[in-house]
Design a protein around this nucleic acid. Structure first.
Lengths: 374, 374
DNA sequence: CACCTAAATGTTGCCGACAACATAAGGGGC
DNA sequence: GCCCCTTATGTTGTCGGCAACATTTAGGTG
């Protein structure tokens, strides 16, 4: 009835049982007919080193040597191989290579809440970094709605012989799954720098939240409200800790820390759920979405932003600059997090050196959602 | 200086040159020492069918037969194999399998603007569908900032012997790259159902936009403004066409179609850039982000939403319900698009039948950004 | 009980790449 | 000119799984 949602264009004569439509032990060829394969451009299956060798009139090992940059090949031979490679459009089969070498060029990536801005940006950074190193990411997204367990995802990944595994979300669930499983490959859990994991105060604790709170304090705010992320996320816990420490350091008062789940709805519900007077003139949300929901709720409660209450977020998602009013927030660089995680993993894979110390910067972006305290 | 952003926990004794630290033709074992490998749980490399066969006292082929569900195995033998499989925690090496069979369980996925809600949701749906079928997605994200060409990404993917390739964004650039390349595997371009590709009016043209425009017309609006997505995107073109057709059908007037790029900023700029009076009482944006930017711009121009101007979006991103004011929009189901694309690809891979006709529904969600025309 | 067939299991070879070993040309030294 | 030794290149075997073919064992039948 409805139009096919997918515009497909099958390419090449490849698949779907080549010539003999009847029987079909797949492409199992008959004895020596193997030599009849792809000779010209674009025909049939991709060329192998054997095809190239035959075309160049050398042995397959000479081709391998050429590909591996071996010096001792006569210029004349070298030229023949080179020509054959290009003529047949040779692409190495990484599958076969890793079967032999035991090392693949693939990284498994587990990710949760991929539809959120943060995680998807982390993924973007990770794929970019991986690609630059000649790797691809095998991505498995945890669907929130169907919690089939991370273990099942890991099982799926474990068969694909990967060079390493990346956890792109740092939740307790994820951490637990990674602890209980044993992989034969390096593993990295990507997370915001946080106080507990690193053992010393993170940038968010030393500069990010202090700067944010000072900004609000300078505007005359004295009583604060925090809307936290889900406690299962290490970044949520860290942000809450950083917030509380910053408020305490300035000798100010935190009225409450309300639980949220990163969504705008939870920010909205949190504020709507406060009984009686709000009791605070500044709402510090752990991310921009919750700040968005909080602003709407404040409006609903008859409070104006920033007239009566100032609101801040964390992340600086692209939309934040266009909220009504535009949101004051702490900018985070998620793509860099993803890149760093991949770099750390590659370091483990290749060398064993884990030298990847990255400088983290959260930057306070002041917009119109914060103003003088009433 | 700053704490290491990545909490890593290397697992297993695997990597890093096992025993002999000196020389090292990798794990190339010495003659028959191959038999000395992993015997107990958790030791060394993953078990192969040969390990299992030895443990069960049968030939490797019997193990294969068991794994493939072959009936003719004596119950007693069957039990021994089963026990050995579990004892060694056997996992098939899909790499080796696909080297032999020529078919892998991996799908290449190319995606652009993954940090946008739509594409990331499509990816979520796609990975979920792939996972259910026992596949994983090899994701390569096109980074907008570094347009290193899709071709390079395809080259990278082409070496990883994939069962098929998915384009999760439908842009001209992507389409062109797919047309000029020849793959030996099925290819599917995931796109919104649109008029041109499908050859007949899409749901968006027959119901989505007509419903939206009628809603606005019923509120008394007569003059409309469209903020379109980037013309390189087929969905942007289709939405613009659907909008114009709907306005025309109701005998109303479209003042202009302004170009945007999906971002809130572009929506903001589009509205700010209109010289003189706005000339319209309803702004129909091609997505929610641009609608968000448009609303802020209208406020900046001294117009109230929805008092003076009504604004609508498309997509119904989770945040849309919490914009100020909450946004009237056409809901789209991106995850379903991703699932459908995978289903179509799998159909091509497995059967050749492309029976995947999915019912597309855009649903009008009325919120507070639309109201009576002034 | 010999004999034949079907069922159950074992053996060999291949996918594509690479590594170790093996061999065929070239260039001195005497 | 003989021998050795360095190049340049060819041959064999391996990774883990599967398919074709080979072989053994069990189950009937005359």
């Amino acid at each position: 009835m409805s139009p096919d949602p997918v515009a497909d264009e099958s390419a090449g004569s490849a698949s779907a049982s080549g010539e003999s439509p009847a029987s079909g032990p797949r492409r199992r060829r008959v004895a020596s007919s193997t030599l009849k394969r792809a000779s010209a451009l674009g025909s049939g299956r991709p060329a192998t080193i054997y095809d190239v060798a035959r075309a160049a009139g050398v042995s397959h090992q000479t081709v391998t040597r050429y590909l591996n940059g071996f010096e001792g090949i006569r210029p004349e031979t070298r030229a023949r191989v080179k020509d054959a490679l290009r003529a047949l459009d040779y692409r190495p089969n990484l599958n076969a290579r890793s079967l032999n070498s035991g090392r693949s060029r693939r990284i498994g990536a587990l990710i949760q809440e991929i539809d959120q801005y943060g995680p998807s940006k982390v993924l973007q950074g990770a794929t970019a970094a991986a690609r630059e190193a000649g790797y691809v990411l095998d991505v498995v997204a945890q669907d929130v709605s169907r919690r089939t367990s991370i273990m099942a995802a890991l099982d799926l990944l474990s068969e694909h012989d990967l060079a390493g595994i990346l956890a792109l979300s740092s939740t307790d669930e994820m951490t637990r799954a990674f602890e209980s499983s044993r992989f034969g490959v390096p593993v990295v859990i990507c997370t915001e720098p946080d106080d507990v994991t690193s053992g010393h105060p993170s940038e968010l604790t030393t500069r990010g939240f202090p700067g944010l709170v000072r900004h609000l304090a300078d505007l005359g705010h004295r009583r604060f409200l925090h809307i936290a992320g889900p406690t299962a996320w290490s970044s949520a816990r860290n942000r809450a800790r950083a917030y509380e420490a910053a408020v305490a350091r300035h000798g100010l008062r935190s009225v409450a820390t309300l639980p949220g789940d990163w969504t705008a709805r939870s920010g909205f519900d949190a504020v709507m759920g406060v009984p009686g007077e709000l009791g605070a003139t500044a709402v510090v949300a752990a991310n921009d979405q919750m700040a968005l929901g909080a602003m709407l709720a404040l409006t609903r409660r008859g409070l104006s932003v920033p007239g009566d209450v100032s609101v801040t977020g964390v992340d600086d998602i692209p939309d934040a600059a266009f909220f009504s009013p535009p949101l004051t927030t702490l900018r985070a660089d998620f793509a860099a997090q993803g890149r760093a995680a991949v770099a750390a993993l590659l370091a483990q894979i290749d060398g064993g050196e884990s030298e990847v110390d990255r400088t983290w910067h959260s930057e306070l972006v002041v917009r119109e959602s914060t103003g003088e305290a009433p």
